[in-house]
Design a protein around this nucleic acid. Structure first.
Length: 277
DNA sequence: AAACAAACCTGTGCGC
DNA sequence: TGCGCACAGGTTTGTT
């Protein structure tokens, strides 16, 4: 579910609600959520601790603890972080609860693909190796056509597949990849290393513009309302989707074709065959 | 190297 | 109403 704009929206919500609050109680329901370490490791790592910062790398949410340790949360497909008054009724699938005085932070995750981990930033290679392998973050890092050209170089895989590869570019998922390719007028199945310079420039511009606009809109909430921010509010960027989920509907860009659906790497892909070459 | 499938889970929506 | 199936925003792993 959540891609870069949704994770960024959650990050900003956490800065406003739980930053600098001491964690006085840690509850872990489903141990699967803390499978990388253990229930006890999370309790020991967070009890009595203050979260003093939140950063984001791609879809990874990273908290800094006053103990010197780090807190990593990945929402994967169905994870949500919600902040509520202490004692509120918890939704189904609430697997972790951090009580911080008058508020509680809940990690809710029906499909249990998500993760919550306390790690030692000095031992990243052992404890959070994937963080070291993430590619450029188009919002958090300097990003332009040259950076994108390097990220796309050396592979003939379909450009959509490469944009989804978190080792090359961190943060794009299935929704935003399709939206970006449409706005750049590039077909999803073009070999990444065969794009012309002008196309790479359009793509870089579209990535920055779409992600920035989506963050301003608080992310995208689809019909199932799976994604909401820490206060339970929906995003609004879905109203600006031009292709995602619009199979057989008229193209909003050219008005002359309809949106087609294909499958790439097992993922649904939406595009306009007339606009995207 | 790349394409594909399966794995991890639960919920929802659809056709019948 | 109920049943079975397809499908879902992510990522890793293993197989052709």
């Amino acid at each position: 579910m959540p891609e870069l704009p949704e994770v960024e929206t959650v990050r900003r919500g956490l800065l406003d609600t739980v930053l600098d609050r001491r964690i006085d109680r840690v509850e872990v329901g489903r141990e699967r959520t803390v499978r990388r370490t253990s229930r006890q490791a999370l309790i020991d790592g967070l009890s009595g601790v203050v979260i003093v910062g939140f950063e984001r790398r791609g879809k990874y949410l990273l908290g800094s603890l006053d103990s010197g340790y780090g807190l990593m949360v990945h929402l994967r497909m169905s994870g949500r972080l919600l902040v509520s008054p202490t004692g509120s009724k918890r939704p189904a699938h609430t697997h972790v609860v951090l009580t911080m005085g008058c508020v509680e932070l809940w990690f809710v995750d029906p499909r249990t693909f998500g993760e919550v981990v306390v790690y030692d930033p000095e031992r990243l290679e052992d404890e959070m190796p994937e963080l070291l392998r993430l590619g450029v973050d188009p919002i958090a890092d300097p990003f332009d056509a040259d950076v994108l050209r390097s990220a796309l170089s050396g592979t003939s895989r379909a450009v959509k597949t490469v944009l989804l590869d978190q080792h090359r570019i961190a943060g794009l998922g299935n929704i935003y990849t399709d939206e970006v390719l449409h706005r750049a007028r590039v077909r999803f199945d073009r070999p990444a290393n065969a794009l012309r310079q002008v196309e790479i420039s359009r793509l870089a511009g579209a990535i920055t513009e779409v992600l920035t606009a989506a963050i301003e809109s608080g992310g995208s909430t689809l019909d199932d309302t799976q994604y909401v921010d820490v206060a339970g509010r929906t995003g609004e960027f879905q109203h600006q989707h031009l292709v995602y989920g619009r199979r057989d509907q008229g193209c909003l860009t050219c008005g002359k074709s309809v949106i087609h659906r294909a499958t790439v790497g097992g993922r649904s892909t939406f595009f306009c065959p007339r606009c995207q070459k």
